[in-house]
Write a protein that binds this DNA or RNA. Structure first.
Lengths: 107, 107
DNA sequence: TTCTATATGTAGGCTGTCTATATGTAGACA
DNA sequence: TGTCTACATATAGACAGCCTACATATAGAA
């Protein structure tokens, strides 16, 4: 998966994976890998800064937890985050329509 | 249309729009706008450098022409460019599948 | 004890898209 | 004649997000 192609869609991916349940960073990476059938293997240097960015934006909230001697910062969607996710989904649909209309124009 | 979302897909758009016939830069911008129903309005500062990049890569070839007192650099797809376009289309399909699988997972 | 998996985080690099600017012609319109 | 818009190409520099590489640390298996 080309890194440039992902650009601008990472927020949508992160919000989507947190829709059902709160998760910590490492688990988010695994969830993305599973949901994508192994195609998405997002490096930590991408995910952790992005999560902080989304928290700063008010779309996520986090809290620390310790489980089995391991510290985790668990993120959950805020109300604004749910709204943002809806916007991202809508933007994704129009994005694919637009690019698709150029790549595979009606004959 | 968010600029970041476009990143990594511009090459595919440019190659696709040149598939049928050679075009010069300004006409390419218009073609993208038409094909996308007005959604794509790519600035010249994006298109001209991108076209040069694609020519350097061997996917496009260009030649100057003067029409009605106006100089135009007309680009056409090379053989390598056609192959690259096929690759871009395939990459686009898998890209949308991957992102889609995360955004709208099977219930 | 060593290795792997788990877990978080930062610094700095890379690169493609953008804004802003520069240059110039043709044709319409006043 | 002068001005405005459309046509047409091009570059410099800003910006931002994703990346690699590295640092740190615990748990459990081998």
């Amino acid at each position: 998966m080309n890194a440039d192609a992902l650009r601008g869609h990472m927020d949508a991916l992160l919000l989507a994976v947190l829709e059902r349940e709160p998760l910590h960073g490492y688990a988010i990476i695994e969830a993305l890998r599973e949901r994508s059938g192994g195609a998405l293997d997002v490096p930590t240097g991408t995910v952790y800064p992005a999560l902080r960015r989304l928290e700063r934006a008010g779309y996520l909230a986090s809290e620390w937890a310790v489980t089995g001697g391991r510290r985790r910062r668990t993120y959950r969607l805020t109300g604004d985050g749910r709204a943002a996710l809806a916007g991202e989904r809508s933007a994704w649909r129009s994005f694919t329509n637009v690019i698709g209309s150029v790549l595979d124009p009606l004959r």
